[in-house]
């Protein structure tokens, strides 16, 4: 079953906000040989009781089903939703991108940032730090362009995602 073509899936996992829960999730992926493309986690409830973990993974459909089932049986997991299967949803990622340079390259970096609606959040006479957000493809594209104008380093959040419409997952 592992020889079927791989698909990219974005999973939302609601878990008890308790010590060790992230280790359980990540450990499950490594122990069973599943992939993690990106992972984000933060406390999302009023009373700090629930965290939301967004995992982007890839694998053939039966493996994705297994991942869902394995996650679902962990005791501190409230809910697992495969947003890719769920339907319309929004995925966003944020990156901080540092570029160094002077002269034309510096001007070009600013011009490109403007097109991508990336905001400079730090500046010196020889550098910028841009904040860019959007789909992973957009962030990838921006980073690729910055390589040509003096990219120094990148920090990315990984994907966060939520379903469209009035309903909670």
């Amino acid at each position: 079953m592992k020889h079927l073509p791989s698909e990219r899936h974005t999973l939302s996992i609601l878990v008890d906000n308790e010590a060790g829960v992230l280790a359980r999730i990540v450990g499950l992926f490594s122990a069973r040989g599943y992939n993690i493309e990106s992972l984000t986690v933060a406390d999302v409830s009023d009373d700090h009781a629930v965290s939301r973990i967004t995992v982007v993974t890839n694998g053939p459909p039966p493996v994705i089903d297994q991942i869902m089932a394995q996650l679902d049986r962990l005791v501190p997991v409230h809910k697992v939703v495969d947003l890719t299967d769920w339907g319309p949803h929004v995925e966003r990622e944020m990156a901080l991108v540092k570029v160094a340079g002077t002269g034309d390259k510096r001007v070009e970096a600013l011009r490109l940032a403007d097109i991508f609606r990336a905001r400079p959040v730090d500046t010196s006479t020889a550098s910028f730090v841009f904040e860019v957000s959007g789909s992973s493809e957009k962030v990838n594209q921006f980073i690729a362009l910055m390589r040509e104008v003096g990219l120094v380093e990148v920090a990315r959040t990984g994907v966060v995602a939520i379903a469209r419409g009035a309903e909670a997952v």
């Binding site: 079953m1 039966p62 089903d65 297994q66 089932a69 394995q70 679902d72 049986r73």
Partner: peptide, 11 residues
């Protein structure tokens, strides 16, 4: 009783 046993190795 364990959903993760379904389709793990045999469909």
């Amino acid at each position: 009783i364990d959903r993760s046993s379904f389709n793990k190795t045999v469909r």
